[in-house]
Design a protein around this nucleic acid. Structure first.
Lengths: 133, 133
DNA sequence: ATATTATAGATATGTGAAGTCCTTGATGGA
DNA sequence: TCCATCAAGGACTTCACATATCTATAATAT
């Protein structure tokens, strides 16, 4: 079980945008070079963040991606859910009574993880940052 | 990101063995039928639990699988690690300084989840159980 | 107008999960 | 001693999904 590379790219891009440029849009070309990934692919990933309302895209010359005004409240969990989806990480496939004890345990463990990811905002990280990305 | 079905099968099998039969070995045929999975496939999964030292297998007539003596200390995390491996669920693929802040956040979130899974023993569940598996 | 830039559809390619089949080897009972 | 029963394990198939790439389209600043 692993988080996808797409999530990795999304998190790093968000952190870069937050740290470097709250103002001007940054082209996908530049973002992709930094992370050694193809621009087209990164673009598909960032489009998900656009649709989730975290960043906005500006088409045309001098365009690119930019954080939205309310970016300071964006958490790790928000970004991860935008890329990976929000399905829980365990589904009991066995048919027994109304509830599965195993499922309950695993889901409550997952909730602990999500709580931590929900409390960590991108903006917290920018504050501590000396090494960029 | 999801836990595999194999993990689901392993957890349910362990719970069943713990609840039903601390004594006599149970054949994979019977275990597989309960979970609606092929015996050969389940066998491969259970072999991992054998190698991890959680259960033992008895070959030959009247054989099967049985919990080991110290089964009461086995946690959810033990079982999950035996099946999924122990690799962390996030690897930063970007080359920057000595440590990645994003990685640190995700790994500490993972640690919260693992802590919960480590504290939950199979034997705790058996105690609360009225619906079997 | 033109160069630049994001969006989106179609299309590989690779990897791992999930499952099957068959052979080997161990063991209790007749 | 032989046989029926059982787990172990290697080889293989199938399928879904992640990870891309390529191309066409649409928007926009200069």
């Amino acid at each position: 079980m692993k988080y996808s590379k797409a999530t990795d790219y999304a998190l790093h891009t968000m952190l870069f945008l937050a740290a470097a440029t709250p103002l001007k849009p940054v082209g996908v070309q530049q973002l992709a070079e930094r992370q050694n990934v193809s621009p087209t692919y990164l673009s598909k990933i960032l489009t998900k963040l656009v649709k989730a309302g975290m960043i906005e895209s500006i088409t045309g010359v001098r365009g690119g991606y930019r954080l939205r005004r309310d970016w300071e409240s964006i958490s790790f969990l928000d970004i991860i859910h935008a890329i990976e989806g929000s399905a829980s990480l365990f589904d009991c496939s066995f048919e027994h009574g109304p509830e599965c004890l195993i499922q309950k345990v695993v889901l409550s463990a997952e909730e602990k993880m999500e709580e931590h990811l929900r409390n960590q905002k991108m903006s917290d990280l920018v504050r501590d940052m000396n090494i960029v990305m």
